[in-house]
Design a protein around this nucleic acid. Structure first.
Lengths: 245, 245
DNA sequence: CAGTGGTCTAGACCACCGC
DNA sequence: CGGTGGTCTAGACCACTGG
Protein backbone atom coordinates (compact mmCIF):
# COMPACT_ATOMS: atom_id res chain seq x y z
CA UNK A 1 0.00 0.00 0.00
CA UNK A 2 1.45 3.37 -1.04
CA UNK A 3 1.83 6.42 1.10
CA UNK A 4 -1.54 8.00 1.70
CA UNK A 5 -1.14 11.10 -0.40
CA UNK A 6 -3.49 14.04 -0.10
CA UNK A 7 -1.92 16.76 -2.20
CA UNK A 8 -3.90 19.96 -2.27
CA UNK A 9 -4.34 20.92 -5.91
CA UNK A 10 -1.81 23.52 -7.03
CA UNK A 11 -3.10 24.92 -10.29
CA UNK A 12 -4.43 21.40 -10.91
CA UNK A 13 -7.60 19.59 -10.04
CA UNK A 14 -7.31 16.93 -7.40
CA UNK A 15 -8.54 14.17 -9.69
CA UNK A 16 -5.96 15.23 -12.27
CA UNK A 17 -3.19 14.80 -9.72
CA UNK A 18 -4.65 11.48 -8.64
CA UNK A 19 -4.82 10.29 -12.24
CA UNK A 20 -1.16 11.14 -12.72
CA UNK A 21 -0.27 9.32 -9.52
CA UNK A 22 -2.12 6.20 -10.65
CA UNK A 23 -0.55 6.45 -14.09
CA UNK A 24 2.90 6.50 -12.48
CA UNK A 25 2.13 3.45 -10.38
CA UNK A 26 1.09 1.62 -13.55
CA UNK A 27 4.21 2.68 -15.45
CA UNK A 28 6.38 1.50 -12.57
CA UNK A 29 4.80 -1.89 -12.93
CA UNK A 30 2.92 -1.97 -9.66
CA UNK A 31 0.00 -3.44 -11.62
CA UNK A 32 0.86 -5.38 -14.77
CA UNK A 33 -1.21 -5.19 -17.98
CA UNK A 34 -4.38 -7.16 -17.41
CA UNK A 35 -4.17 -6.87 -13.64
CA UNK A 36 -7.10 -5.63 -11.61
CA UNK A 37 -6.51 -2.35 -9.86
CA UNK A 38 -7.75 -1.74 -6.31
CA UNK A 39 -11.46 -1.05 -6.06
CA UNK A 40 -12.66 2.52 -6.32
CA UNK A 41 -13.75 2.56 -2.69
CA UNK A 42 -10.41 1.30 -1.42
CA UNK A 43 -8.50 3.78 -3.60
CA UNK A 44 -10.73 6.56 -2.32
CA UNK A 45 -10.06 5.49 1.25
CA UNK A 46 -6.29 5.14 0.80
CA UNK A 47 -5.99 8.55 -0.84
CA UNK A 48 -8.43 10.14 1.57
CA UNK A 49 -10.78 11.49 -1.09
CA UNK A 50 -14.42 11.02 -1.94
CA UNK A 51 -15.54 8.24 -4.22
CA UNK A 52 -16.61 10.62 -6.98
CA UNK A 53 -13.15 12.15 -7.06
CA UNK A 54 -11.34 8.88 -7.57
CA UNK A 55 -13.92 7.97 -10.19
CA UNK A 56 -13.07 11.09 -12.17
CA UNK A 57 -9.39 10.21 -11.93
CA UNK A 58 -10.04 6.70 -13.22
CA UNK A 59 -12.18 8.12 -16.01
CA UNK A 60 -9.16 10.00 -17.27
CA UNK A 61 -7.16 6.79 -17.40
CA UNK A 62 -9.99 5.09 -19.24
CA UNK A 63 -10.13 7.94 -21.78
CA UNK A 64 -6.39 7.55 -22.32
CA UNK A 65 -6.86 3.87 -22.91
CA UNK A 66 -4.66 3.03 -19.93
CA UNK A 67 -7.41 1.31 -17.95
CA UNK A 68 -10.78 -0.29 -18.61
CA UNK A 69 -13.75 -0.64 -16.30
CA UNK A 70 -15.77 -3.85 -16.18
CA UNK A 71 -19.04 -3.48 -14.33
CA UNK A 72 -19.27 -5.89 -11.41
CA UNK A 73 -15.70 -7.12 -11.89
CA UNK A 74 -13.30 -4.26 -11.38
CA UNK A 75 -10.96 -1.80 -13.09
CA UNK A 76 -8.10 -3.33 -15.07
CA UNK A 77 -4.86 -2.11 -16.58
CA UNK A 78 -5.12 -2.17 -20.37
CA UNK A 79 -3.45 -4.89 -22.36
CA UNK A 80 -1.63 -3.50 -25.36
CA UNK A 81 -2.84 -3.37 -28.93
CA UNK A 82 -2.45 -6.59 -30.85
CA UNK A 83 -1.54 -5.22 -34.23
CA UNK A 84 -4.66 -6.70 -35.79
CA UNK A 85 -6.72 -3.94 -34.18
CA UNK A 86 -4.44 -1.37 -35.77
CA UNK A 87 -5.30 -2.73 -39.21
CA UNK A 88 -9.02 -2.44 -38.66
CA UNK A 89 -9.37 0.54 -40.99
CA UNK A 90 -7.37 -1.03 -43.78
CA UNK A 91 -8.52 -3.43 -46.39
CA UNK A 92 -6.31 -5.30 -48.79
CA UNK A 93 -7.25 -7.79 -51.50
CA UNK A 94 -10.43 -5.92 -52.30
CA UNK A 95 -12.59 -8.92 -53.09
CA UNK A 96 -13.13 -10.51 -49.72
CA UNK A 97 -13.56 -8.47 -46.59
CA UNK A 98 -12.92 -11.57 -44.50
CA UNK A 99 -10.21 -10.74 -42.02
CA UNK A 100 -7.77 -13.55 -42.09
CA UNK A 101 -4.59 -12.58 -40.31
CA UNK A 102 -1.82 -12.54 -42.89
CA UNK A 103 1.17 -14.81 -42.44
CA UNK A 104 4.52 -13.31 -41.62
CA UNK A 105 7.97 -14.03 -43.11
CA UNK A 106 11.14 -12.39 -41.87
CA UNK A 107 13.41 -11.63 -44.83
CA UNK A 108 16.43 -10.06 -43.20
CA UNK A 109 17.64 -8.24 -40.11
CA UNK A 110 20.65 -6.29 -38.95
CA UNK A 111 22.04 -3.89 -36.40
CA UNK A 112 23.09 -0.45 -37.53
CA UNK A 113 23.70 3.13 -36.52
CA UNK A 114 20.53 5.20 -36.05
CA UNK A 115 19.87 7.96 -38.55
CA UNK A 116 19.38 11.45 -37.18
CA UNK A 117 15.63 11.18 -37.60
CA UNK A 118 15.55 7.84 -35.77
CA UNK A 119 17.78 9.03 -32.96
CA UNK A 120 15.54 12.02 -32.50
CA UNK A 121 12.29 10.07 -32.59
CA UNK A 122 13.54 7.39 -30.21
CA UNK A 123 15.27 9.84 -27.90
CA UNK A 124 18.65 8.21 -28.46
CA UNK A 125 21.91 10.07 -28.10
CA UNK A 126 24.17 10.51 -31.09
CA UNK A 127 25.71 7.20 -32.20
CA UNK A 128 22.61 5.38 -30.97
CA UNK A 129 22.04 1.90 -32.36
CA UNK A 130 18.90 0.42 -33.87
CA UNK A 131 17.72 -3.02 -34.92
CA UNK A 132 16.11 -3.21 -38.34
CA UNK A 133 14.36 -6.04 -40.12
CA UNK A 134 12.23 -6.63 -43.18
CA UNK A 135 9.08 -8.65 -43.13
CA UNK A 136 6.81 -9.94 -45.88
CA UNK A 137 3.19 -10.55 -45.13
CA UNK A 138 1.18 -12.93 -47.25
CA UNK A 139 -2.48 -13.78 -47.59
CA UNK A 140 -3.05 -17.39 -48.64
CA UNK A 141 0.62 -17.45 -49.70
CA UNK A 142 0.13 -14.38 -51.91
CA UNK A 143 2.51 -11.52 -51.01
CA UNK A 144 0.55 -8.40 -50.10
CA UNK A 145 2.60 -6.22 -47.75
CA UNK A 146 6.28 -5.45 -47.36
CA UNK A 147 7.35 -3.99 -44.03
CA UNK A 148 10.56 -2.37 -42.92
CA UNK A 149 10.69 -2.09 -39.14
CA UNK A 150 13.17 -0.20 -36.95
CA UNK A 151 13.48 -0.63 -33.18
CA UNK A 152 15.67 1.30 -30.72
CA UNK A 153 18.44 -0.82 -29.41
CA UNK A 154 19.01 -0.86 -25.76
CA UNK A 155 15.31 -1.53 -25.33
CA UNK A 156 14.92 -4.33 -27.86
CA UNK A 157 18.22 -6.07 -27.22
CA UNK A 158 16.51 -9.34 -26.32
CA UNK A 159 14.82 -9.42 -29.72
CA UNK A 160 17.96 -8.53 -31.65
CA UNK A 161 19.81 -11.46 -30.11
CA UNK A 162 17.06 -13.99 -30.66
CA UNK A 163 16.39 -16.25 -33.63
CA UNK A 164 13.97 -14.56 -36.00
CA UNK A 165 12.65 -17.88 -37.29
CA UNK A 166 11.07 -18.43 -33.88
CA UNK A 167 9.29 -15.09 -33.83
CA UNK A 168 5.57 -14.78 -33.50
CA UNK A 169 3.35 -13.55 -36.36
CA UNK A 170 1.99 -10.81 -34.15
CA UNK A 171 4.81 -8.46 -33.29
CA UNK A 172 3.20 -6.27 -30.66
CA UNK A 173 2.34 -9.04 -28.21
CA UNK A 174 5.86 -10.35 -28.76
CA UNK A 175 7.37 -6.96 -27.96
CA UNK A 176 5.56 -7.12 -24.66
CA UNK A 177 6.45 -10.70 -23.87
CA UNK A 178 10.14 -10.45 -24.74
CA UNK A 179 11.04 -6.84 -24.06
CA UNK A 180 8.31 -5.56 -21.75
CA UNK A 181 7.28 -2.99 -24.34
CA UNK A 182 3.57 -2.36 -24.61
CA UNK A 183 2.27 -0.56 -27.70
CA UNK A 184 -0.38 1.95 -26.74
CA UNK A 185 -1.09 3.99 -29.86
CA UNK A 186 0.40 4.89 -33.21
CA UNK A 187 0.37 7.49 -35.93
CA UNK A 188 0.09 6.48 -39.56
CA UNK A 189 0.95 8.65 -42.52
CA UNK A 190 -0.39 7.44 -45.85
CA UNK A 191 1.08 8.39 -49.18
CA UNK A 192 1.44 6.95 -52.66
CA UNK A 193 4.65 6.08 -54.45
CA UNK A 194 6.11 3.67 -56.93
CA UNK A 195 7.87 0.44 -56.12
CA UNK A 196 11.59 0.14 -56.44
CA UNK A 197 13.01 -2.90 -58.20
CA UNK A 198 13.93 -4.76 -55.03
CA UNK A 199 10.59 -4.12 -53.36
CA UNK A 200 8.67 -5.02 -56.51
CA UNK A 201 10.35 -8.39 -56.67
CA UNK A 202 9.36 -9.21 -53.09
CA UNK A 203 5.74 -8.38 -53.82
CA UNK A 204 5.75 -10.12 -57.20
CA UNK A 205 4.95 -6.88 -58.98
CA UNK A 206 6.83 -4.85 -61.55
CA UNK A 207 9.21 -2.03 -60.75
CA UNK A 208 7.44 1.31 -60.85
CA UNK A 209 4.12 -0.25 -59.92
CA UNK A 210 1.95 2.15 -57.86
CA UNK A 211 2.04 1.40 -54.15
CA UNK A 212 0.66 2.72 -50.92
CA UNK A 213 3.20 3.67 -48.35
CA UNK A 214 2.28 3.79 -44.69
CA UNK A 215 4.79 5.43 -42.37
CA UNK A 216 3.98 4.48 -38.81
CA UNK A 217 5.38 5.60 -35.50
CA UNK A 218 4.21 3.51 -32.55
CA UNK A 219 4.29 4.68 -28.93
CA UNK A 220 4.14 3.02 -25.53
CA UNK A 221 1.96 4.07 -22.60
CA UNK A 222 4.53 6.59 -21.44
CA UNK A 223 4.34 8.29 -24.82
CA UNK A 224 7.82 7.28 -26.01
CA UNK A 225 8.23 6.35 -29.66
CA UNK A 226 9.34 2.71 -29.65
CA UNK A 227 8.88 1.57 -33.25
CA UNK A 228 9.17 3.09 -36.71
CA UNK A 229 7.79 1.16 -39.62
CA UNK A 230 7.30 1.61 -43.35
CA UNK A 231 4.73 -0.61 -45.02
CA UNK A 232 4.24 -0.91 -48.77
CA UNK A 233 1.56 -2.68 -50.75
CA UNK A 234 -0.19 -2.71 -54.10
CA UNK A 235 -2.08 0.56 -54.46
CA UNK A 236 -4.92 -1.00 -56.42
CA UNK A 237 -5.90 -3.49 -53.74
CA UNK A 238 -6.05 -0.96 -50.95
CA UNK A 239 -8.82 0.77 -49.07
CA UNK A 240 -8.77 2.91 -45.98
CA UNK A 241 -11.75 4.11 -43.99
CA UNK A 242 -11.65 7.15 -41.74
CA UNK A 243 -14.24 8.67 -39.48
CA UNK A 244 -14.12 12.48 -39.51
CA UNK A 245 -15.72 14.38 -36.63
CA UNK B 1 -40.42 26.16 -20.94
CA UNK B 2 -41.12 22.49 -21.66
CA UNK B 3 -43.19 20.14 -19.60
CA UNK B 4 -41.30 19.24 -16.45
CA UNK B 5 -40.47 15.61 -17.23
CA UNK B 6 -39.33 13.18 -14.58
CA UNK B 7 -39.39 9.80 -16.29
CA UNK B 8 -38.24 6.97 -14.12
CA UNK B 9 -35.54 5.11 -16.01
CA UNK B 10 -36.92 2.02 -17.76
CA UNK B 11 -33.89 -0.05 -18.66
CA UNK B 12 -32.12 3.28 -19.16
CA UNK B 13 -30.22 5.63 -16.92
CA UNK B 14 -31.93 8.87 -16.10
CA UNK B 15 -29.16 10.99 -17.57
CA UNK B 16 -29.37 8.96 -20.77
CA UNK B 17 -33.06 9.76 -21.07
CA UNK B 18 -32.37 13.41 -20.29
CA UNK B 19 -29.66 13.55 -22.95
CA UNK B 20 -32.07 12.17 -25.52
CA UNK B 21 -34.69 14.71 -24.49
CA UNK B 22 -32.24 17.58 -24.87
CA UNK B 23 -31.04 16.18 -28.18
CA UNK B 24 -34.62 16.20 -29.45
CA UNK B 25 -35.15 19.79 -28.38
CA UNK B 26 -32.01 20.75 -30.31
CA UNK B 27 -33.10 18.84 -33.43
CA UNK B 28 -36.49 20.52 -33.30
CA UNK B 29 -34.72 23.85 -33.43
CA UNK B 30 -35.58 25.05 -29.96
CA UNK B 31 -32.00 26.24 -29.70
CA UNK B 32 -30.23 27.11 -32.94
CA UNK B 33 -26.56 26.27 -33.63
CA UNK B 34 -24.43 28.67 -31.64
CA UNK B 35 -27.19 29.44 -29.16
CA UNK B 36 -26.60 29.15 -25.46
CA UNK B 37 -28.61 26.45 -23.75
CA UNK B 38 -30.20 27.01 -20.35
CA UNK B 39 -27.78 26.85 -17.45
CA UNK B 40 -27.14 23.51 -15.79
CA UNK B 41 -28.85 24.63 -12.59
CA UNK B 42 -31.97 25.81 -14.38
CA UNK B 43 -32.14 22.61 -16.44
CA UNK B 44 -31.75 20.58 -13.27
CA UNK B 45 -34.54 22.53 -11.64
CA UNK B 46 -36.91 22.30 -14.60
CA UNK B 47 -36.40 18.55 -14.96
CA UNK B 48 -36.48 18.01 -11.23
CA UNK B 49 -33.13 16.23 -11.02
CA UNK B 50 -29.87 16.85 -9.24
CA UNK B 51 -27.17 18.99 -10.79
CA UNK B 52 -24.79 16.08 -11.24
CA UNK B 53 -27.40 14.17 -13.22
CA UNK B 54 -27.99 16.94 -15.72
CA UNK B 55 -24.24 17.37 -16.00
CA UNK B 56 -23.85 13.75 -17.02
CA UNK B 57 -26.57 14.23 -19.62
CA UNK B 58 -24.83 17.28 -21.04
CA UNK B 59 -21.53 15.39 -21.06
CA UNK B 60 -23.08 12.89 -23.44
CA UNK B 61 -24.06 15.69 -25.79
CA UNK B 62 -20.56 17.09 -25.59
CA UNK B 63 -19.05 13.68 -26.40
CA UNK B 64 -21.34 13.48 -29.43
CA UNK B 65 -20.18 16.88 -30.54
CA UNK B 66 -23.69 18.26 -30.28
CA UNK B 67 -22.86 20.78 -27.55
CA UNK B 68 -19.79 22.50 -26.15
CA UNK B 69 -19.17 23.83 -22.67
CA UNK B 70 -17.44 27.16 -22.09
CA UNK B 71 -16.37 27.70 -18.51
CA UNK B 72 -17.92 30.85 -17.09
CA UNK B 73 -20.04 31.46 -20.17
CA UNK B 74 -22.45 28.61 -20.69
CA UNK B 75 -23.25 25.53 -22.74
CA UNK B 76 -23.79 26.09 -26.45
CA UNK B 77 -25.25 24.15 -29.33
CA UNK B 78 -22.47 23.16 -31.74
CA UNK B 79 -22.00 25.03 -34.96
CA UNK B 80 -21.42 22.67 -37.86
CA UNK B 81 -18.12 21.66 -39.39
CA UNK B 82 -16.70 24.14 -41.85
CA UNK B 83 -15.21 21.79 -44.37
CA UNK B 84 -11.74 23.13 -43.69
CA UNK B 85 -11.67 21.18 -40.44
CA UNK B 86 -12.52 18.02 -42.36
CA UNK B 87 -9.41 18.46 -44.47
CA UNK B 88 -7.15 18.76 -41.47
CA UNK B 89 -5.67 15.32 -41.97
CA UNK B 90 -5.02 15.80 -45.65
CA UNK B 91 -2.10 17.48 -47.29
CA UNK B 92 -1.76 18.30 -50.95
CA UNK B 93 1.06 19.97 -52.82
CA UNK B 94 3.69 18.30 -50.65
CA UNK B 95 6.13 21.18 -50.57
CA UNK B 96 4.44 23.70 -48.33
CA UNK B 97 2.34 22.66 -45.37
CA UNK B 98 0.84 26.14 -45.20
CA UNK B 99 -2.91 25.77 -45.16
CA UNK B 100 -4.29 28.18 -47.67
CA UNK B 101 -7.92 27.41 -48.36
CA UNK B 102 -8.19 26.33 -51.99
CA UNK B 103 -10.38 28.31 -54.38
CA UNK B 104 -13.55 26.75 -55.72
CA UNK B 105 -14.91 26.65 -59.27
CA UNK B 106 -18.26 25.10 -60.16
CA UNK B 107 -17.94 23.31 -63.50
CA UNK B 108 -21.44 21.94 -64.03
CA UNK B 109 -24.64 20.96 -62.28
CA UNK B 110 -27.83 19.10 -63.02
CA UNK B 111 -30.87 17.38 -61.58
CA UNK B 112 -31.28 13.67 -62.12
CA UNK B 113 -32.83 10.47 -60.87
CA UNK B 114 -31.11 8.97 -57.82
CA UNK B 115 -29.27 5.70 -58.28
CA UNK B 116 -30.28 2.81 -56.05
CA UNK B 117 -27.26 3.35 -53.85
CA UNK B 118 -28.03 7.05 -53.48
CA UNK B 119 -31.72 6.48 -52.79
CA UNK B 120 -30.78 3.98 -50.12
CA UNK B 121 -28.12 6.17 -48.49
CA UNK B 122 -30.33 9.27 -48.48
CA UNK B 123 -33.46 7.39 -47.44
CA UNK B 124 -35.31 8.45 -50.58
CA UNK B 125 -38.15 6.43 -52.05
CA UNK B 126 -37.80 4.93 -55.51
CA UNK B 127 -37.77 7.60 -58.23
CA UNK B 128 -36.10 10.01 -55.77
CA UNK B 129 -34.33 12.99 -57.27
CA UNK B 130 -30.84 14.31 -56.56
CA UNK B 131 -28.86 17.42 -57.40
CA UNK B 132 -25.35 16.80 -58.67
CA UNK B 133 -22.53 19.20 -59.43
CA UNK B 134 -18.84 19.13 -60.23
CA UNK B 135 -16.35 21.39 -58.57
CA UNK B 136 -12.68 22.09 -59.22
CA UNK B 137 -10.50 23.26 -56.39
CA UNK B 138 -7.33 25.14 -57.10
CA UNK B 139 -4.34 26.26 -55.06
CA UNK B 140 -2.81 29.48 -56.38
CA UNK B 141 -4.70 28.83 -59.63
CA UNK B 142 -3.20 25.34 -59.92
CA UNK B 143 -5.88 22.62 -60.15
CA UNK B 144 -5.47 20.09 -57.34
CA UNK B 145 -8.82 18.45 -56.58
CA UNK B 146 -11.83 17.45 -58.62
CA UNK B 147 -15.05 16.88 -56.70
CA UNK B 148 -18.33 15.32 -57.72
CA UNK B 149 -21.04 16.09 -55.18
CA UNK B 150 -24.53 14.63 -54.88
CA UNK B 151 -27.29 16.08 -52.67
CA UNK B 152 -30.77 14.68 -51.96
CA UNK B 153 -33.40 16.78 -53.57
CA UNK B 154 -36.30 17.80 -51.52
CA UNK B 155 -33.85 18.96 -48.86
CA UNK B 156 -31.51 20.95 -51.09
CA UNK B 157 -34.13 22.44 -53.39
CA UNK B 158 -33.10 25.98 -52.52
CA UNK B 159 -29.55 25.30 -53.69
CA UNK B 160 -30.60 23.58 -56.88
CA UNK B 161 -32.64 26.59 -57.92
CA UNK B 162 -29.97 29.16 -57.11
CA UNK B 163 -27.19 30.55 -59.30
CA UNK B 164 -24.03 28.54 -58.75
CA UNK B 165 -21.81 31.49 -59.63
CA UNK B 166 -22.94 33.14 -56.40
CA UNK B 167 -22.08 30.15 -54.24
CA UNK B 168 -19.66 30.34 -51.37
CA UNK B 169 -16.27 28.60 -51.44
CA UNK B 170 -17.14 26.75 -48.26
CA UNK B 171 -20.03 24.44 -48.96
CA UNK B 172 -20.94 23.27 -45.49
CA UNK B 173 -21.66 26.69 -44.01
CA UNK B 174 -23.65 27.41 -47.16
CA UNK B 175 -25.71 24.24 -46.71
CA UNK B 176 -26.63 25.51 -43.29
CA UNK B 177 -27.38 29.07 -44.36
CA UNK B 178 -29.48 28.19 -47.41
CA UNK B 179 -31.01 24.83 -46.57
CA UNK B 180 -30.78 24.54 -42.80
CA UNK B 181 -28.58 21.49 -43.11
CA UNK B 182 -25.81 21.20 -40.58
CA UNK B 183 -22.97 18.75 -41.27
CA UNK B 184 -22.01 16.93 -38.11
CA UNK B 185 -19.60 14.18 -39.17
CA UNK B 186 -18.51 12.21 -42.19
CA UNK B 187 -16.93 8.97 -43.28
CA UNK B 188 -14.14 8.95 -45.82
CA UNK B 189 -13.03 5.94 -47.79
CA UNK B 190 -9.65 6.29 -49.48
CA UNK B 191 -8.64 4.24 -52.44
CA UNK B 192 -6.35 4.44 -55.40
CA UNK B 193 -7.30 4.66 -59.07
CA UNK B 194 -6.33 6.14 -62.40
CA UNK B 195 -7.75 9.26 -63.97
CA UNK B 196 -10.19 9.07 -66.84
CA UNK B 197 -9.61 11.30 -69.85
CA UNK B 198 -12.22 13.89 -68.88
CA UNK B 199 -11.01 14.07 -65.26
CA UNK B 200 -7.38 14.26 -66.30
CA UNK B 201 -8.06 17.24 -68.50
CA UNK B 202 -9.68 19.14 -65.63
CA UNK B 203 -6.69 18.51 -63.41
CA UNK B 204 -4.18 19.20 -66.17
CA UNK B 205 -2.78 15.70 -65.93
CA UNK B 206 -2.64 12.86 -68.40
CA UNK B 207 -5.26 10.15 -68.73
CA UNK B 208 -4.33 7.13 -66.66
CA UNK B 209 -2.38 9.21 -64.19
CA UNK B 210 -2.46 7.73 -60.66
CA UNK B 211 -4.97 9.44 -58.40
CA UNK B 212 -6.35 9.20 -54.91
CA UNK B 213 -10.06 8.76 -54.68
CA UNK B 214 -11.90 9.81 -51.54
CA UNK B 215 -15.50 8.63 -51.23
CA UNK B 216 -17.22 10.64 -48.55
CA UNK B 217 -20.62 10.35 -46.96
CA UNK B 218 -21.55 13.30 -44.74
CA UNK B 219 -24.21 13.19 -42.04
CA UNK B 220 -26.24 15.75 -40.11
CA UNK B 221 -26.77 15.81 -36.34
CA UNK B 222 -29.73 13.46 -36.61
CA UNK B 223 -27.47 10.91 -38.31
CA UNK B 224 -29.05 11.15 -41.75
CA UNK B 225 -26.75 10.97 -44.76
CA UNK B 226 -27.12 14.33 -46.52
CA UNK B 227 -24.19 14.45 -48.94
CA UNK B 228 -22.23 11.99 -51.07
CA UNK B 229 -19.02 13.15 -52.61
CA UNK B 230 -16.17 11.73 -54.67
CA UNK B 231 -12.90 13.65 -54.65
CA UNK B 232 -9.96 12.92 -56.93
CA UNK B 233 -6.46 14.33 -56.92
CA UNK B 234 -2.90 13.57 -57.96
CA UNK B 235 -1.78 10.55 -55.97
CA UNK B 236 1.81 11.67 -55.70
CA UNK B 237 1.10 15.00 -54.05
CA UNK B 238 -1.08 13.53 -51.36
CA UNK B 239 -0.59 12.71 -47.70
CA UNK B 240 -3.01 11.54 -45.06
CA UNK B 241 -2.34 11.32 -41.34
CA UNK B 242 -4.30 9.02 -39.04
CA UNK B 243 -4.15 8.52 -35.31
CA UNK B 244 -4.62 4.87 -34.35
CA UNK B 245 -5.62 4.04 -30.79
C1' DC C 1 -24.05 -13.73 -1.03
C1' DA C 2 -20.28 -10.11 -0.83
C1' DG C 3 -17.74 -7.13 -3.83
C1' DT C 4 -17.45 -4.47 -7.86
C1' DG C 5 -18.61 -0.42 -10.72
C1' DG C 6 -22.89 2.71 -12.06
C1' DT C 7 -26.36 6.04 -10.83
C1' DC C 8 -28.31 9.79 -8.16
C1' DT C 9 -28.77 13.13 -4.60
C1' DA C 10 -28.05 17.71 -2.00
C1' DG C 11 -25.17 20.82 -1.03
C1' DA C 12 -20.66 23.41 -0.59
C1' DC C 13 -17.08 25.95 -2.56
C1' DC C 14 -14.00 27.36 -6.47
C1' DA C 15 -12.64 29.40 -11.12
C1' DC C 16 -13.92 31.86 -14.95
C1' DC C 17 -16.49 35.42 -17.65
C1' DG C 18 -18.59 39.74 -18.62
C1' DC C 19 -20.68 43.86 -17.14
C1' DC D 1 -20.65 41.73 -8.91
C1' DG D 2 -23.90 37.82 -10.43
C1' DG D 3 -24.10 33.99 -13.43
C1' DT D 4 -21.80 30.24 -15.58
C1' DG D 5 -19.52 25.75 -15.55
C1' DG D 6 -15.85 22.86 -12.62
C1' DT D 7 -14.58 20.45 -8.46
C1' DC D 8 -15.43 17.88 -4.28
C1' DT D 9 -17.95 15.73 -0.62
C1' DA D 10 -20.76 12.02 1.89
C1' DG D 11 -23.84 8.98 1.51
C1' DA D 12 -27.73 6.13 -0.51
C1' DC D 13 -29.22 2.81 -3.60
C1' DC D 14 -28.99 0.01 -7.98
C1' DA D 15 -26.96 -3.47 -11.40
C1' DC D 16 -23.71 -6.65 -12.53
C1' DT D 17 -20.35 -10.51 -11.47
C1' DG D 18 -18.72 -14.48 -9.37
C1' DG D 19 -18.29 -17.98 -5.90
Amino acid sequence: MPATLLHPPLGQSRYGVLAQALRSRILQGEWAPGDMMPSESSLAASYGVALGTIRQALSLLVEDGVAVRLHGKGTFVTKGMDGASMMRFFRFSDSDAALEPPESHILSSRLRQATDAEAHAFGLGSSGQVFQFERLRTLRSEPCLLESIVLPLPLFGALAESDSSAWDDLLYPMYQARCGVLIHHAQDELSFAQLGAREAKRLRLTAGHPCVRVDRKAYDIAGRCVEMRVTRGDAFSFKYTAQVK
